[in-house]
Design a binder for these strands. Structure first.
Lengths: 206, 206
DNA sequence: CTTGACGGCTAATCCGAATTAGCTTATAAT
DNA sequence: ATTATAAGCTAATTCGGATTAGCCGTCAAG
């Protein structure tokens, strides 16, 4: 990885731990293994580093049209998978979603950074909103919608069902971001949530 | 309100908007209507102002043993209210909870500040966890548990039911904190959530 | 070969923001 | 009346951290 990119990487790590204002260009340089003034050969100033991180993230986001597409397949193909689904595979889906969000290094650091910086300006608030509200809900709505169409789930209000699916996942995610030690506990809760979700919305029980 | 307390008040406002590091003692002083050096007659330094806010908050928290007790009554008395409950009064409960969290000025500012500062140290992470995870879930578990006992709701897993009740409320709250303009939309979603929740867990439908 | 751009370094510089010094006024207690 | 204390002010002071200046080696293109 070239220096220019390593700067972004280390900066993101630091920003996600302490927030932009509490990270010194010195810290970043040190981690990269160069001296602070050398940073300026690559970026105009500290703010430019931050901006570049946001840009990079926007690019990734464009490319895969949503980090939620875990399988790296396009949504219409995913559909096949959900045709013959049962409780267990549904639980797997939720868990994988959660674990992806939780462990994917880039995603995790970016989310934490955004959590800290979201109130700084409208644009950042918007990015957060897109990443952790609009996108997940709309993508999952599509998937769960397919499952409704397949008769695996049943509801007359897919968006709200999706909210019921996603909101607990999101909440548990924030818990783990704050206290990584609670991951196991969260995973247990997550599983109970998914099982209950299936009981509530699943057709198989009736 | 005396100066000493006004400092905390204005500081909290600023911290909740920009985060501790981006607020200058000057800003605080200006809002209070004094000069920066005068702040030091009341607090040892900037950090002491922050700490005092956390302390004050911990006190409030002790006093009312949980901000969730909206009615200002003790929980056992609240129980009476939930004895004869129907869908509508349940929706009111959820809405009031949401609106209290959203509009109570102190609560709101404190929550936003904590959102920004939660990764700064373990203690803050802990305060956040207590305020927006443990406390709400345990208090609401108790209330919803009562409703189960009363036959208004039905489940074999009260904690998870509570998660299903609370997580969407929390998610919508974060949305509104980020973009206050979406409050109306969030309120609509909230209502749908609660209606659906009642359908899923309510006994009246069966 | 030589030149220019790239990326690194050290040594300033600059600047803004926290804090301290020291003076003043008001008020409350002796 | 006197004095101590509280609470404010202006004018430094300090200090840390971002940024700039200016130098040097490397290496690829001509």
């Amino acid at each position: 990885m070239d220096t220019k990119h390593r700067i972004l990487d280390e900066a993101l790590t630091l920003f996600s731990e302490k927030g932009y204002a509490n990270v010194y260009v010195n810290d970043i340089a040190e981690r990269v293994g160069i001296k602070a003034p050398s940073l300026y050969k690559h970026y105009k100033n500290k703010q430019a580093i931050f901006d570049a991180i946001i840009d990079e993230m926007n690019n990734r986001f464009m490319e895969q049209a949503g980090a939620l597409n875990i399988n790296g397949m396009d949504p219409t193909k995913d559909a096949d998978i959900y045709k013959n689904m049962n409780e267990e595979s549904m639980i797997e889906l939720g868990k994988n979603l959660f674990l992806y969000y939780l462990h994917d290094d880039y995603t995790k650091r970016f989310r934490k950074m955004l959590t800290i910086e979201q109130f700084h300006d409208k644009e950042l608030a918007n990015v957060y909103q897109q990443q952790y509200y609009e996108m997940p809900l709309s993508y999952q709505s599509m998937l769960l919608g397919l499952m409704v169409a397949q008769g695996v789930l049943s509801t007359d209000n897919v968006p709200i069902m999706t909210l019921h699916f996603y909101a607990p996942i999101y909440l548990l995610l924030t818990v783990c971001d704050r206290e990584p030690g609670r991951e196991e506990e969260a995973l247990k809760t997550l599983e109970e949530h998914l099982r209950q979700f299936d009981k509530l919305y699943g057709r198989t029980i009736e």
